[in-house]
Every structure is written in structure tokens, then in C-alpha cells.
Computed example of a mutant assay.
Amino acid sequence: MKATDAAPAPCVAIERDCMRDKIRKAVIARILDGSYSAGTRLKEMALAQEFQTSQAPVREALRELESLGLVETQRYKGTYIRVASEEETREAYALRACIEEACARLAIPVSADNLALLQADVDGLVAAVRRKDLDDYARYNLAFHRRVVALSGNRTMLKVWDSLGWEVRSRQTLNTAHRQPRFQAAVKEHQTIVDHLAAGDGETAGRILRAHTEPFVASPSPKK
């Protein structure tokens, strides 16, 4: 009887997935804090040594980052940090506006438990504004918008939304001086969205979501 290769042990696969996520999150954190600037080369071997792992999870993490548009791999040259162009960012926000408007309509009816989660996100935004904590604001804002998309039950739209790399893109947008949002007004808009979803009015909630996002589509870069 011919021997066959055994499948990888489940615990090994889980461990590799965890390491991949750890590396991906570390690279994202370094992009956000400026440790990795555009053009920085990411060396697989160096990252593997830093995280005391093989190159396999490093390679997987870099593939995920490339799918998010955060790095680019050049044949025979390596993998480098990239920064989205102004046009690419506007296009991403335009697509996000369409997705979130549609998802708000599809989310109706929203259960009491899910409304409570959305309200918790808004409460987190309120607290972040009070503390002037941009990191927490970005985190709760991202959680709120992703939750609305997820509540639609449309896995394809959620996958597309995730693929736009909002963990970095939205934080970079908030860091851009000419795009600093009017935080108090933005928080009120989030609360109004929750109120309309609670009332079963997905149409209005969707229109507000779209209007909330569209300023980022139209905002040009400041002239130098």
C-alpha cells in the first residue's frame, strides 16, 4: 500500500495563522506610527528572525498586506511599503459610500443586541472625542462602519469592504491635517444612523452614511 503524506497537524496550522496575524498587525502598526515609510523594503528573513518563526507565515502576512494595497512586491527586487495615491483613496471612499448605503438598507430589521453593539461603538466615539484620543476614535469609527456592513448579511460586500484596507487608510486620512473631521458633528451623525436603524428606516440611515463618507471622496489635496 502506497504511503501518503499526512495533513499538517491542526495545531501547527493554527499556530502559523496566529503568527501570520501577529506579523501583519505589527507591520500595520509600524506604517501607522511612521516606522515604515513609503519605499521601505520588508525582508522576509529579517522579519522571520525578529518574530522567531519560519518564512512561511511572513510570506502569508505580506500577501495579505499586498491584497490590502499596503505593500507591493517587485519581481527579483522584494517587497516594499507603498502609500495609496490621492486618487486611489478617493476611489476607495466612493466605493465605501455605495457599499455602506446599500448595507444599511439590507440590515433592517436590526436586533436589539446588534443595536446595543452599534450604540457601544458610538459611546466609544463620544469618549474618544472627549479625551481627544485619535487612536480610539479611529478604532471605534472603523468598528461601527464595519458592523453596519456585516449586519447586511451580504458576505461579498463585507469582503470587498475589508479588502479596501480601512485599518490603515482611515487612520492615515484622520492624520491628514486638511481632512481633520468635525468630530462632534461626526459623532452626532453616527448616533442619528443608529436611531434610524432602530426605527427600521434603513433608507435614511443609508443616505446619512453615504453623505457622511462623501466629503472624503471630494476633498482635494491642499496645494503646495
Rank of each mutant, 00 (worst) to 15 (best):
K2T: 03
A3G: 09
D5V: 09
A6W: 06
A9M: 08
A9V: 06
P10C: 08
C11E: 13
I14C: 04
E15V: 01
E15A: 03
E15F: 01
D17F: 00
D17I: 00
C18L: 11
R20P: 02
D21S: 01
K22V: 00
I23K: 02
A26D: 11
V27I: 14
I28L: 02
D33N: 15
S35K: 05
S37W: 05
S37D: 10
A38V: 04
T40D: 09
R41L: 03
K43R: 05
M45R: 15
A46R: 02
L47H: 07
Q49N: 12
E50R: 04
Q55P: 05
P57I: 01
P57W: 01
V58H: 10
R59G: 01
L62V: 04
R63Y: 00
R63H: 01
S67T: 00
L70W: 03
V71T: 13
T73S: 15
Q74H: 14
Q74A: 12
T79Y: 11
Y80I: 10
E86Q: 10
T89H: 05
T89K: 11
E91Q: 12
A92W: 12
A94H: 04
C98H: 14
E101Q: 15
E101V: 10
A102C: 08
C103N: 09
A104E: 11
R105L: 09
L106S: 05
A107W: 04
V110K: 05
A112Q: 14
A112Y: 09
D113E: 15
N114P: 03
L115P: 05
G124H: 08
V126A: 12
V126R: 15
A128D: 11
K132R: 08
D136G: 06
Y137G: 12
Y140L: 12
N141C: 06
F144W: 01
R146D: 11
R147K: 13
V148T: 06
L151D: 13
S152N: 04
S152E: 09
N154W: 07
R155L: 04
T156L: 09
V160T: 12
W161A: 13
D162F: 08
R169T: 00
Q172T: 00
Q172P: 01
Q172D: 03
Q172A: 03
T173Q: 01
T176A: 07
A177D: 15
A177Q: 13
H178V: 15
Q180I: 08
Q184R: 14
A185L: 11
V187D: 12
T192Q: 15
D195F: 01
L197K: 07
A199L: 13
A199V: 07
A205I: 01
G206T: 06
I208R: 04
P215T: 03
P215A: 05
A218Y: 06
K224Y: 10
K224F: 11
